[in-house]
């Protein structure tokens, strides 16, 4: 696949060099994919997005968008010359402009193109309304319509799903995916939420302390994390005791199954109820292990058997 964005050796330090927010970062984003930068707050993901968009200048490195070098030692194109668009965290709709004016803001698109985008994003009936008169979901679609009107090479999504309650978030997330697919856009999605990342992404890059730690498909990064940090960040893991015979290995909770076979047995230390499933915390020879279960007959203190799915073992070099 043809890369739309190529970033090479991007470097950036803040606070007179004491904080590194981008440490020689290199990666590329292919045409049509939703590429996610996943990291905790302060990991440098937002700065990366801002450097890509031209809102922040790197210290060094190269950024290419399409066939154009937009940043290197000699070139530094302004944001409006980079053929990018952003959907901001709080959508950044201009409160004094109507929805149609917001979408057309700064655009050279024709009236027909504007109408087309509004129809596709299902907001054509809102054109004369103002941002405060529409719902959160509608605001997201307006922000998306504004971003895609000028057919950017890449759409940058700056945590548009954070600060939204869980119920609405699920709806908005699926709408967002649907729209991105509908318009066939290449997107860079910034988030700290692994669930959003898994749901939306073609590929995920895990970032921490200005470094990209791992890049891969959602399944790859979940099942084969490159480091203990990545493994922990993407979900709970069990550190398996040496006595189990797997060496220095780890496994996800779903890889440790309760079993009627008592070859390996443990005592139930605690049962945590999560609504549609239980997390069973086991005491195995003084080590703590966890597993998921749907069985509501289990009781704390019970001794049960368990097995480990060896195909899902996680080991680090």
């Amino acid at each position: 696949m043809k890369p739309i964005v190529t970033i090479e050796n991007l470097h950036k330090r803040f606070c007179k060099g004491s904080v590194c927010v981008a440490n020689d970062i290199s990666f590329s984003i292919n045409e049509g994919e939703i590429f996610t930068i996943l990291g905790r707050s302060g990991s440098g993901k937002t700065t990366l997005l801002r450097m890509l968009s031209g809102l922040e200048n790197p210290d060094s490195g190269t950024i290419c968008i399409g066939d154009k070098v937009v940043y290197d030692a000699k070139t530094n194109l302004s944001p409006n010359q980079r053929e990018i668009a952003i959907v901001f965290q709080n959508y950044a709709l201009l409160p004094h402009l109507s929805i149609a004016q917001n979408i057309a803001f700064g655009s050279k698109a024709s009236q027909e193109e504007l109408l087309h985008v509004m129809q596709k994003t299902k907001i054509e009936t809102l054109s004369s309304k103002y941002p405060h008169e529409i719902s959160g979901g509608q605001q997201q679609r307006v922000a998306l319509a504004r971003a895609i009107l000028d057919k950017p090479k890449i759409l940058l999504l700056d945590e548009p799903l954070s600060n939204i309650d869980t119920e609405l978030r699920t709806i908005l997330r699926s709408e967002l995916k649907e729209m991105i697919k509908l318009f066939g856009i290449t997107a860079l999605f910034i988030t700290h939420d692994k669930e959003d990342a898994f749901y939306l992404s073609s590929r995920i890059a895990i970032m921490d302390g200005g470094d990209i730690l791992q890049i891969g498909t959602p399944k790859e990064v979940y099942n084969h994390p490159s480091s203990l940090y990545c493994a922990n960040f993407l979900g709970k893991i069990n550190a398996l005791p040496q006595s189990l015979g797997f060496g220095a290995a780890y496994c996800r909770l779903d890889a440790l199954r309760l079993s009627p076979d008592f070859t390996r047995k443990a005592r139930i230390k605690e049962i945590v109820f999560y609504g549609n499933f239980y997390e069973i915390i086991l005491d195995f020879e003084g080590a703590t292990l966890s597993a998921y279960s749907f069985d509501d007959t289990l009781r704390e203190g019970d001794v049960i058997g368990f097995e480990v799915d060896e195909s899902k073992l996680i080991t680090f070099a």
Binding site: L55, P79, N80, A85, I86, A92, G106, S107
Partner: peptide
């Protein structure tokens, strides 16, 4: 973010 939006959307 309004500042950023006005810059990105090219006015």
């Amino acid at each position: 973010s309004i500042d950023d939006a006005t810059i990105v959307f090219g006015t």
